[in-house]
């Protein structure tokens, strides 16, 4: 079985393409839901050490809101949707016609709106890549946490880190009305599922 850091550039390209299709579908879903122009950046595939991965998404003590879904079936891994206030406000303005100044002001209603948005985007992402690759994926019920990025990102690291000191993130960012906001959708597959997926697509070079 190939480790994350042993993936060839062709294999990484294929994963980036998968990320691109997933992110594109999530963007379309969000755009339809919000009736807003939603763009996306080219997804990135990164294989980083635990500390570097947290630094890449903003540093350990940055406060973010995270919606987490675990995937099982033929793709074991975690999807994490990280957001900051700029993105949250763009959404809340549309859904609840309100804005918040800080994370402390998130009430039950706001939280359930954000969980639902995250859920729909993650589901569209997974259903697109499941259709594309023919793999069967089951999703958990989404959970949300507003806290330090380091604590939130340690969850997939702990879950997937038993046999490795690295984590693979396939991440896409979204643009709301052409403005870049902090809104990162991450797919983190476990090593075994990654090998299975690449083999199934006929690109795994063993």
């Amino acid at each position: 079985m190939k480790k994350y850091e042993e993936m060839s550039s062709l294999e990484i390209d294929v994963l980036r393409e998968i990320g691109s299709i997933g992110t594109g579908n999530a963007a379309t879903a969000l755009s339809q839901m919000m009736n807003k122009k939603i763009g996306m950046t080219m997804p990135e595939v990164q294989i980083l050490g635990f500390n570097e991965a947290i630094a890449k998404f903003g540093g350990p003590e940055m406060i973010v809101s995270g919606v987490l879904v675990t995937t099982s079936g033929e793709l074991n891994g975690i999807m994490l949707y990280l957001q900051q206030l700029d993105f949250i406000n763009a959404m809340l303005e549309e859904v609840l016609v309100e804005k918040i100044e800080s994370f402390e002001q998130l009430g039950e209603l706001e939280v359930s709106a954000l969980v639902e948005i995250g859920n729909i985007m993650i589901s569209s992402y997974i259903s697109a890549i499941s259709k594309l690759t023919g793999i069967h994926v089951k999703l958990s019920v989404p959970a949300m946490s507003v806290n330090m990025l380091g604590g939130i990102m340690s969850v997939p690291m702990v879950e997937l880190g038993h046999q490795t000191d690295k984590i693979m993130t396939i991440s896409g960012k979204f643009l709301v009305d052409d403005k870049e906001v902090y809104s990162n959708l991450l797919l983190m597959p476990d090593v075994g599922s990654l090998n299975y997926l690449l083999k199934k697509l006929g690109v795994l070079n063993e």
Partner: peptide, 9 residues
Amino acid sequence: MFEVQPNSS
């Protein structure tokens, strides 16, 4: 950090 259902690791 997260209340994930069903009870996972």
